[in-house]
């Protein structure tokens, strides 16, 4: 039974952390206030004015910490209770996949859905790139065997001219190969983000609980402040940034995928390949100019957003979270620079 309660407590700690750590913090605060009140009384009996003044100041500080706890409690309730799905959906920053009823409305679920959707988009794009390369290799080379023709007509062997027309230049496939390499390499960083984001709820619960409890005690106050900054940075600022940045990227990708990932996709790829082949260009153009330009625009936009989401956005998010954590931790505790290690690795 005890084991069951413990397990339930641990699960609740992760899913609804404020329900667990709020009572713990409040009990700790009340206990310390009780101790300080006793010291205050003893100092009165002992005639120690300095101890009495110190106890009074410390009680005020504990009360201030309790106010801080209440503020963070309100923040936690907001994070879990607020409809972020509705908020981002109302301003057009929610991708179609995240509008599904199965996706919860809290910040963490919306952020996870966004990043997961982006990773899915990248996998689709890789497949599309591979498909385009594969399609290109199916365009046949035209071999003109003049020697065999002369032999067939005149029965004279070994005299004539041969030529081979290779319609798809080798650099097309080389380029597609590089593209796939780059995308898969950068995709690793995206997966790292997904893991970090998956842990953000736990980090928020853990660091915030440690921070708020530690901030109550005098000797661990600065350490507690640092933990609060870390918890707020990784648990609140980071998911918020993911929702915003990948919201912009995903919605744009959704829209442009609708342009080119349709039944006309293979037709469009054929058009592109065919337009690069001089002896077919103009003669066979399955799509109109406007439709082709719109398709090309969709493809390049999709690739551009993928590049931004893979290369620019992760570093931007990390840098912003780092900036927030450094400055906030310095203001309420010890300066923490969690990106120092990562910076050195990079």
């Amino acid at each position: 039974m005890i084991q069951g309660i413990m397990l339930q407590t641990v699960t609740q700690f992760v899913t609804s952390p404020y329900i667990i750590w709020f009572p713990i913090v409040m009990i700790a605060a009340l206990a310390i206030i009780g101790v300080l009140a006793m010291m205050y009384m003893l100092s009165t009996f002992a005639g120690r004015g300095d101890l009495r003044a110190w106890s009074r100041v410390k009680i005020y500080e504990i009360l201030l910490s309790v106010v801080l706890v209440l503020l963070f409690f309100a923040l936690a309730v907001t994070l879990f209770g607020f409809d972020f799905k509705g908020l981002f959906g109302s301003v057009g920053l929610l991708p179609t996949a995240c509008k599904d009823a199965s996706v919860a409305t809290d910040l963490f679920s919306v952020a996870m859905c966004n990043l997961h959707q982006f990773n899915n988009n990248i996998l689709t794009l890789n497949f599309m790139t591979y498909y385009a390369g594969l399609s290109a290799t199916f365009v046949p080379s035209l071999k003109i065997n003049g020697t065999a023709l002369i032999e067939h007509l005149t029965l004279i062997q070994g005299i004539g001219v041969d030529d081979t027309l290779v319609p798809i230049p080798a650099f097309v496939n080389n380029f597609l190969g590089y593209l796939i390499d780059i995308m898969y390499s950068a995709y690793v960083l995206s997966q790292v983000q997904l893991l970090l984001l998956g842990a953000s709820l736990l980090l928020f619960s853990l660091f915030m609980a440690i921070g708020l409890i530690a901030r109550i005690f005098v000797i661990t106050r600065s350490f507690g402040g640092s933990m609060i900054a870390l918890g707020a940075g990784l648990g609140v600022v980071y998911p918020l940034l993911v929702c915003m940045t990948y919201g912009y990227v995903n919605v744009g990708m959704d829209y442009n995928a609708g342009i080119f990932v349709t039944s006309t996709m293979s037709l469009a790829i054929t058009t592109l390949i065919v337009s690069m082949v001089p002896f077919f260009s103009g003669a066979v153009l399955p799509m109109g100019v406007a439709a082709f330009q719109q398709w090309l625009s969709g493809v390049l936009t999709y690739f551009g957003l993928a590049a931004a989401g893979l290369l620019f956005v992760p570093f931007l998010n990390f840098a912003i979270v780092d900036v927030f954590v450094i400055d906030f931790s310095k203001a309420i505790g010890e300066k923490v620079d969690f990106m120092k290690l990562l910076t050195n690795v990079i």
Binding site: F280, S281, G282, A283, L285, Q293, L296
Partner: peptide, 14 residues
């Protein structure tokens, strides 16, 4: 015949 075509005009972003 096909080689006389010029497909460059369509290979532009709108």
């Amino acid at each position: 015949i096909g080689a006389s075509a010029n497909a460059s005009s369509i290979l532009n972003l709108p």
